[in-house]
Design a protein around this nucleic acid. Structure first.
Lengths: 329, 329
DNA sequence: TTGAAAGCGCTACCAC
DNA sequence: GTGGTAGCGCTTTCAA
């Protein structure tokens, strides 16, 4: 790999001059600049980002922390972030926490030790504050944490929406899968739903769940139908869990949506490929990622006067696990 | 952040000594070592990896290139790699190519500029050779490229297996979704299947497809049933595509597996949550990731005398989109 | 067994 | 406008 010295020698100038044209600052004569650019091309020189980063204490890297890369919701978030930051010349590096606490610490440290310019985190460890004393700005995505900058979907409204759509379409005995207790976003959905159901005096039951993982979901699905065999409307804590419930319901011979309605949360790409296609509350994952990236870049640039906590709208996606709403109902 | 100088001062020794205990090389007296370790703890000092990397021209980072982070197969690969390399003290950084060629170049460059110690790539651009003149070792995963080190599943056997299982269970008019032409692994499956079908003189048709993406898959599913409405056995190029086909088949009122059998490829986590649960050819994604990581680490350590091209076994996973095989059939 | 110092590749200050 | 050079934090000779 050619270094800045090689370029300087080739162009017959000093490294200082090369550095100036590289960073496009300071005075440099048109001819000199041309010389340098030629030399750069001839040697196909690429600046060593490590050396740059050592001096500047900042890199072109942005770190993303994901709780579980296998849940399709999170890759979608990542896509939105990527598209936004690459436009600004940053590169994304993803760390997968795998829902394990020590991994989160490791990655934060790795990010710091490698001088990332900013961090976006979607992890869900309980109220720890390693994020408080970081030198780089942090944005919480699909999460909130004290008054840190954050981007999140409107879970309360989402829960309310899911409950009301279910009841509007005729469900009388709702069952709610509650979602992990330590996850604020999951609790928002839950609280939004039960607040509405209580206000409307609709009968409902609750199944406690502790994760969003594939493997656990089938277990809760079984538990649900054993405990509440005559439920006729289910609010799943997310689409992955909904898929498991759907599967179990069909295995038990339930007619969907005739006997049983089901609404998920997230709207992951596979939801429409399920059978029947899953009705769900859509979180705008891609756009949430984009917003989080924009917010982070503002923080990096030390801009002021912008909204630091962004609530994104959710939307009911009507597919075939819910009935058609009755006309003039 | 404390630096090595601060530690040296605190311990009353030189930075050279601190460096020696940090890297556990050279002579250092027991007492001195203790002093240094205490100082490190008091200051909660973490070495600056950027400075280290600048000197050594090597980091603790391993780069992973994924074609599409949204296809659940790839995150699973990533998990296997992660588990293996973290045991060895490396950290994984993931780059998502999004099936776009320039992004692959960008990431390779970013990886180089940041001195990654090794690269694992699962991307599928057509026969380019940017990988030839890289300073760090490269392992191809779920891909092969010339004689570069690689880890891949036995696609030929997988294709043969899928075809024979379908026929064994009574399908007579097979349709094959071919998969992207530039992807060697996809072509292996295809070739394995048609070789067997020809040898057995079974009737089959082919639908050309050009990607593995969700959005395209439904299109091909429709095309399939329009062109070959009386097909009674389908080999999908992967599970994502199979999900789309399944969905479309049920929409058309086909009885599965009675009228129509279907086999996917990969065995992604959602396959068992589909309805009916998808029969498929399983690639051991997690283990493939682990093997690729092991191979890379051997390359990094400049070991010799080990297998550089690893073919992993595939396996038929019998679920409910295929019929039970007849006893004494 | 330890310390002084050079140097990894780059940026930015100061002189000219 | 341009060049010399200190220094970012670390590792590794080389001397002592």
């Amino acid at each position: 790999m050619a270094t800045i010295k090689d370029v300087a020698k080739q162009a017959g100038v000093s490294v200082a001059t090369v550095s100036r044209v590289l960073n496009d600052n300071g005075y440099v004569h048109g001819n000199t600049r041309k010389l340098v650019i030629e030399a750069i091309q001839q040697l196909s020189y690429k600046p060593n980002e490590v050396a740059r980063s050592l001096f500047k204490k900042k890199s072109r890297l942005i770190g993303l922390l994901l709780p579980d890369i296998r849940n399709p919701f999170f890759p979608e978030l990542a896509r939105g972030i990527e598209d936004e930051i690459q436009e600004q010349g940053y590169q994304l590096i993803i760390g997968n926490i795998d829902e394990k606490y020590p991994k989160e610490m490791d990655y934060i440290q790795t990010f710091q030790q490698n001088n990332v310019t900013g961090i976006i985190t979607a992890t869900n460890l309980t109220g720890r504050s390693h994020y408080d004393d970081l030198s780089s700005p942090v944005v919480f995505l699909d999460r909130t944490f004290n008054d840190h900058p954050s981007v999140f979907a409107d879970g309360i409204e989402g829960g309310r929406m899911a409950a009301s759509e279910l009841v509007k379409r005729g469900s009388k005995r709702i069952t709610i899968l509650k979602g992990p207790a330590q996850l604020q976003t999951a609790q928002d959905r839950f609280n939004g739903a039960i607040a509405w159901l209580r206000a409307e005096k609709v009968d409902f039951s609750v199944i406690e769940t502790s994760s969003f993982s594939f493997s656990d979901a089938e277990m809760w699905a079984k538990e649900l139908f054993e405990k509440y065999p005559d439920t006729d409307g289910i609010l799943a804590s997310n689409d992955v869990v909904a898929a498991a419930v759907l599967h179990e319901a069909l295995r038990l011979g339930k007619a969907i949506p005739e006997d049983l309605q089901l609404i998920g949360f997230d709207d992951i790409p596979l939801s429409r490929l399920l059978f029947p296609p899953l009705s769900t509350i859509r979180q705008p994952a891609y756009d949430m990622g984009k917003e989080a990236a924009k917010l982070l870049i503002r923080l990096i640039n030390k801009e002021t006067h912008f909204e630091k906590n962004i609530r994104m709208p959710v939307m009911f996606i009507e597919r075939q696990t819910t009935r058609k709403v009755e006309e003039n109902g």
